[in-house]
Amino acid sequence: MMFTNRMFNILVPVISVLLGLIAGAIIMASFGYNPLNGYQALWAGSFGDIYYFGETIRQVTPYIFTGLAVAFAFRSGLFNIGAEGQVIVGWLASVWVGAAFDAPMIIHLPLALLAAALAGAIWGFIPGLLKAKLGVHEVIITIMMNYIALHVSNALIRSVLSENQDSSDPIKESASLASNWLMEMTSYSRLHFGILIALFAAMIMWFLLEKTTAGFELRSVGFNQHASRYAGMNVGKNIILAMVISGAFAGLGGAMEGLGTFGYMPTHSAFTNLGFDGIAVALLGGNNAFGVVLAALLFGTLKIGALNMPTAADVPSELVEIVIALIIFFVASSYIIRWVLLRFKKEGK
């Protein structure tokens, strides 16, 4: 049996997920729950019937976007903690355009999506610019931008998007991603057409990174800035570009909530966590587009399924947060998994 690099890249996430689930089972057992009941409840709550299935896919949709956003930045050597803030401004912009204009759907919907992407891109541009021109750490700037996004959007919802209400006015039908057809098919879950856009975005990311010169430069900068500069690439430009595209993905993730799931934007007293969860999605997905889709599917399943665990198995839903944390931990420690695998391989001979 050969252990190629490619195989490791598939085996490590799979083993990490298994280890995470096993650890979760051990935790459940040690607190006197039946792990089988727990996971059964999780499964029933995510794929048990068509309604839950719809809700799961709905949750997966923004995860794909935020996962792509974080992954795209990672591939260019940048850590975008700011997906969270970019989601918020994207959500805000999409709802704004969705509510403020009247236009046929063929114009209105793309316009609202574009606004979201643009808002996210601007929110990514600022840390990108500061990193490229002044060498300011992108992590700290994106953290700050998250808070600014949260407070500014809350203020705008109260003052501009509504008359002192705690949520914005609803968007017009012509900007909505929601579909009666999908809702009826999934016994009235909030499933919407966003999932198709998300899958399309994943393909775009794959194509952009793997098949274009611009993508090659971005990856090259991610591997080694000095070598890239020596090869004549404009490192600063690529850093900015990476953050802009990353921000646009995250902004679209916000539009999925604004135009699809909710149709409006409530004020947020805390973060949505879509952006932070996107970090986990990107990491488990190995920072590539296909992996991100699979990881988003897994985390969406876990998150939605967890909601059923307290009622069906009496297990606190936070168990799933622990499982997710452990999965990330195992992915991070892939060195040790590789080491063990190689050990087994040697002994097998």
């Binding site: 990491l283 936070e318 947060e321 622990i322 997710i324 991070a332």
Partner: peptide, 19 residues
């Protein structure tokens, strides 16, 4: 384990809140 330290830090954040 020579993990990516950022990743492992993220795991710590998730784990602490979950626990």
């Amino acid at each position: 384990f020579r993990a990516d330290q950022v990743v492992s830090g993220v795991a710590i954040n998730f784990l602490a809140l979950g626990l």
